[in-house]
């Protein structure tokens, strides 16, 4: 019998009653940590009409699901969500708490951590236990990896992006307990999410694209950025970016790949005019073939790809586009 105290927690998230992929991925990693700690995996899920989803969490690896099922919880409400989770954590005293770094998770995690006066790490690309069973969060920074620990306070909290861990295979025969949660009645009521509005994203979605073309500061200006966008369009690829390109205003935050952006694992990645900063490159570790175009032969990006082109990307990209079109035309005529 596994011990029930000091569990590993995952705060699951649903949108329109769909549990997000990152929640399943975190349950998979929580199982590994719980096995090493000799404890169980408990998941908190808040929403409306989501009883069936609690079953999916058990199939993915949860031993216990705390289920808040009420109209007031249908979508992320900071005040109620924080109140429920902080109160429950004070009772159950989890050893570890993992949260997906979605927009809601990125707001909720620091609210919970501050409410529990404990430590929280961001942008983890790996989670493991040291010889004293303390959680180590591996975080890319300064061209290397930082190990961050929370030695005394509990729970040890971390946020993790979609795609860092793989989803476990669901096992429908797994059994687990579903514990219904009460919605607290007495709240200050100082903040309320009135509605969630979805806007259809343009172009090919990054996370599932077979080809990703990413641009960086080397684009130089909007015109240069336009060439990189043209290359992406020619290849029917998703367009990604680095933080400097976002900061310059050439593209939206949604296109940023890496530590504080999206994780991608395409068949082909082409990095254009970017320097190979780790904060970006950690987002592409799963790519099959990687290409970099950079005018600096000494750039660290060339240590991280399969094929390198040393050239001014503003000159090279239009030529590459022509060659790709020629190749495509040949395919059609043969």
């Amino acid at each position: 019998m596994k011990k029930q105290d000091s569990p590993v927690w995952v705060i699951a998230e649903q949108i329109d009653c769909q549990v997000l992929a990152v929640s399943f991925q975190l349950i998979g990693q929580a199982r590994k940590l719980a096995a090493e700690l000799g404890t169980c995996v408990e998941v908190v899920l808040l929403g409306d009409n989501i009883s069936e989803q609690a079953r999916q969490l058990i199939a993915a690896g949860a031993d216990k699901v705390y289920l808040g099922n009420a109209p007031d919880l249908a979508f992320y409400q900071p005040e109620i969500y924080t109140e429920i989770i902080v109160k429950l954590a004070k009772e159950r005293r989890p050893e570890i708490m993992l949260i997906g770094s979605t927009s809601a998770g990125t707001e909720l995690a620091p609210l919970i951590a501050a409410g529990l006066e404990t430590g929280l790490t961001a942008h983890c690309i790996d989670l493991l236990l040291d010889e004293n069973k303390i959680l180590i969060s591996k975080i890319p920074a300064y061209g290397g990896l930082l190990s961050i620990i929370c030695p005394e306070k509990r729970p040890q909290m971390a946020t993790i992006a979609t795609g860092v861990f793989t989803s476990p295979h669901p096992d429908e025969s797994r059994t687990g307990e579903i514990v219904p949660l009460k919605v607290p009645a007495e709240l200050p009521g100082r903040i309320q999410t009135l509605k969630v509005v979805r806007e259809e994203p343009e172009g090919v979605p990054l996370e599932s694209a077979p080809i990703v073309v990413a641009g960086g500061a080397g684009a130089g200006d909007r015109k240069g950025w336009g060439m990189i966008a043209d290359l992406a369009q020619t290849l029917n690829a998703a367009l990604g970016s680095t933080r400097p390109a976002v900061d310059e205003g050439w593209t939206e935050l949604e296109t940023m790949i890496g530590q504080s952006g999206k994780m991608v694992s395409p068949e082909l990645y082409i990095g254009v005019g970017l320097s190979g900063e780790l904060q970006h490159m950690v987002g592409i570790v799963g790519a099959k073939v990687m290409v970099a175009v950079n005018n600096d032969a000494k750039s660290q990006v060339f240590e991280q790809v399969d094929y390198g082109i040393v050239d001014d990307c503003r000159e090279f990209v239009p030529v590459l586009i022509e060659k790709i079109k020629e190749y495509r035309e040949k395919l059609v005529t043969c």
């Binding site: 190990s147 240590e303 094929y307």
Partner: peptide, 18 residues
């Protein structure tokens, strides 16, 4: 609550063909 316990430089690299 949190401290940096270690710093690693990264070693895993692909072999590039220029």
């Amino acid at each position: 609550p949190t401290i940096v316990s270690d710093l690693d430089s990264l070693t895993s690299r692909r072999t590039v063909e220029i």
